[in-house]
Amino acid sequence: MSTADTGTRTRRTPGLVPVTETLSTVERRPEEPSDRPAPLAPQAGRRAGAFWRLLVSELSLTFHRPRNLAMLAALATVPVIMGVSLRLFAGDDQVGGMIAAVAGNSLMLTFLALSALVLLMMPIAVSVVAGDALAGEAGGGTLRYLLAAPAGRTRLLAVKYLNAVVYAYAVTAVVALSALVTGLVLFPAGDVVLLSGTTVTMTDGLLRIALTVGYVGFALSAVAAVALAISAFTEVPIGAIAGTVVLIIACQVLRAIPALEAIAPYLLPTRFTGFDAVLRSPIDTGALTEGLLTFGAYIVMSLSIAWAHFTGKDVTS
């Protein structure tokens, strides 16, 4: 390599002052032989914790950003509002189903809140973070410095996605916790009546909430993957965010058209509320598995598309 380079240089610039004659090179020259093994060593220079260091940096960026924290706070207030209004107005006998169940048991507010927020609000919050992930860096120009650092494109994509997944689970946990606390304050605690009419203990109920958080978090991780894929294609973060949200709303609309019932099971939002399977006796593992497989398929597809595009993309911003 070096021979070829020297040859090229000699050929191209015959009249140049040789490199060896510049002052700094002369000074540096004697060191070179002892440093010759250096090209073989750099692989060792890659530090074991480097991936986590970048992930921690990414997480700290995400969780220190006022916008992202404001979204978490806004989501946390919704279950409180729901709980209080149910407490005030759910007195009459006309209500049935989940609303009546919430009035009867504190844990049910968590399921009600998640089922209401998972349709649009929580996906929007996740889209903001995941849609901004690459497009925001590209738009702000920081992407070129990250890549020149070098963050590595595949590595950066992985970190961006894991960061969005953590945020997705944070969103889910915040809503679940807020609803749980609100429920415990406002409604009677105790045994939980499932949709099947079966009664289970409160501990069992809490376990089912944990299952639900896992499921909803995974659902939002699929949203994050879609948003990240869109984010890889644009330099306008608001475009990636809006694109994802419009996609989710479009799916919700398609889902409501009876003639398109055949494609509904393959649409992401159809599976969002699939966690009602944990409220049955026995738990409908089939429905849960179908939901998780659907999310998994969306994650694999979106991430592979994002990877294929992003690793070959010309970064001109």
Partner: peptide
């Protein structure tokens, strides 16, 4: 099973129950 609801018919010996979670 429907979205956040479930209707059950349970037959056990001479007992037959019809459970509708929507109307509780």
């Amino acid at each position: 099973p429907t979205q956040f609801n479930e209707t059950n018919v349970i037959v056990n010996g001479d007992q037959v129950w019809y459970w509708d979670s929507d109307s509780n």
